[in-house]
Design a protein around this nucleic acid. Sequence first.
DNA 1: GATGAATGAGGGTTCATTCAT
DNA 2: AATGAATGAACCCTCATTCAT
Lengths: 193, 193, 193, 193
Amino acid sequence: MADLTKRQKEIIDASINLIDENGIQNLTIKNLAQAMKISEPAIYRHFDSKLDILIAILDDFNNITGKSLNPAKQKPGSALEKIEYIFTSHMDIFTEKPSLAAVVFSEEIFQNDKKLSDTVYAIMKTRFKIITGIVKQGQTAGEIKSTIPPEQIALILTGSLRLIVTNWRLSGRAFSLKKEGKEFWETMKKLIV
Amino acid sequence: MADLTKRQKEIIDASINLIDENGIQNLTIKNLAQAMKISEPAIYRHFDSKLDILIAILDDFNNITGKSLNPAKQKPGSALEKIEYIFTSHMDIFTEKPSLAAVVFSEEIFQNDKKLSDTVYAIMKTRFKIITGIVKQGQTAGEIKSTIPPEQIALILTGSLRLIVTNWRLSGRAFSLKKEGKEFWETMKKLIV
Amino acid sequence: MADLTKRQKEIIDASINLIDENGIQNLTIKNLAQAMKISEPAIYRHFDSKLDILIAILDDFNNITGKSLNPAKQKPGSALEKIEYIFTSHMDIFTEKPSLAAVVFSEEIFQNDKKLSDTVYAIMKTRFKIITGIVKQGQTAGEIKSTIPPEQIALILTGSLRLIVTNWRLSGRAFSLKKEGKEFWETMKKLIV
Amino acid sequence: MADLTKRQKEIIDASINLIDENGIQNLTIKNLAQAMKISEPAIYRHFDSKLDILIAILDDFNNITGKSLNPAKQKPGSALEKIEYIFTSHMDIFTEKPSLAAVVFSEEIFQNDKKLSDTVYAIMKTRFKIITGIVKQGQTAGEIKSTIPPEQIALILTGSLRLIVTNWRLSGRAFSLKKEGKEFWETMKKLIV
DNA sequence: GATGAATGAGGGTTCATTCAT
DNA sequence: AATGAATGAACCCTCATTCAT
């Protein structure tokens, strides 16, 4: 997972940027080589195939956001604080590395290949469960309304986050992602507390 | 818009199916021709280019869902009823023609071409405004909590609807979209009323 | 030859125009049909094949310019007058129907097909002989210097005429073909008399 | 210009041969690949597009004949000698590489593309001016009749050269280009001195 | 006379990948 | 570790032509 060479990291970075620029169709070995100013076969020194690059991208995303998800679950603190932390850290990550959003919220990209689409779906499910779990904790602790199924709250949280990020991307990053995220979270709190 | 010939309709139907099966990369003229059991050049009798086919798909979607959106705005009735109608009719459309979802909620598909991606973004914005408008009506009428910005509610509605449909697709339609949609809407009502 | 129907004449006219606009590659049945506002199969009502259209174009040119060439040979009058007549009538024809030049002085066009290229070469040779014959008459009559081989004079006349017309076309008809032709002829007279 | 790789030179050579054989329509990537016994995509390692190949052909011709044109202008010696040199060296070039003639004197070939046709026209104009300049020098030096406009002489020279070469090609190289050229030049001298 | 629909052959071009150097 | 050269498969699209209506 994390045992990527420096060159491999550069390749997945360049790949994400290419996808961000013009979609998955823009990620070709030729473009990648040009962007990195190396030859095309050179890519194959570092990855066996294009598929492996895509898998590495997903792994990379998992590593980055995992840091905000997993600890959040165990760390002491109120459920609301945990959710807020997940929320804001995602916004931070995307703000810092906007191209990541293009890749991660576009399941379409990976639909091509069974292995990839399964991976994506698995990631989504894991995340969903973690958030649902935190919501449950919050309900048990009396922080969050108990009349609402926790899955529904997780659904709203995840779906809205995705849409905000998507809008942000499609608008050409015309607004502050962090601010918009914060506003939404304030609204959410009003609704679920 | 609606002045499509019978053959053109068949082509966009076949296109949507291909995209649904294996993503946009599966929509090639060759596959399309094979699916329709005609030759590749025959496609070009009916559409000038592949791009035109994609545009026709978007128009088609707009026509189908427009019927549920626009009347909903003007028709008398409570805002909640209107939103519910939009919600359920979308679920009905996707249940009936699941492949449509693959196309419509995958902005990525159209990212390739400036003209297309602009079209998609415009559609999204229009829809968002219509829903926001209905929510406002509901707030004025005292049906919906006034303490929450209407845009935020529209965001939640749209984002959640998208995610439900996406999950449904990625799960291989493992659950009832209509039922899941209904449950979500019941939850929403509890939150916003 | 001359037994072309009205529709056939329209087709070869439209063909010449298309070639003139963008070269022989612009002469496609599709473009032809569009230009004439009829369907593609309709063309085949009037000509068996595209090749037949090209042959008809050559015949047409032969008919038009033959009128100036053949009589010129037999008509009484000085050789210089005859040549001048041929010269000016060609300039008149091209000025009136500029697209004809694009077709007739581009042997390349017909290189594709043995039958066509032979036809073109035969036409060129016939013309050359006629002019050479007139020059000979002029030399016998003492109008033209006898020290110069008549073929060389015919070569100069034909070659220069072609180049003037070609320049005129490539320049976007930026100068008066008639005037330029007249000037050249005046120069020629000084040289050969 | 001259920084063509060995493989690139082979490609433009093969291209010129194909055009010579059966006209521009014979120059397809498929034919080119077959002639060179490599695959079609292999061509694209060396040229970005077919258009670039055509441009390289023109450049190549310019380089080859430029050697005879430019020095001729500055080198000391009588104007007649200079013109004769240009004339004979062109005949030599075409005799050695007959296919070049098919390409260079067929403006039609390049009519397809604005960029190409402009290039061809520019080349023609430059050549014409150089020859006109030399003629002027000859008139000033008293070698050439001063009563005739220098442009007209340049026109005759260029037009006749073109026609001789064209006839030679269309006849299937049935006569000696060098000899025919020499004869014509002898005639010209008689006329303009 | 004319048309809508269709097609086999072929056009230029891009793809991920391999291999000798 | 990197490259130049190459390739089979596939891409979108256009061609002249045919045929049923």
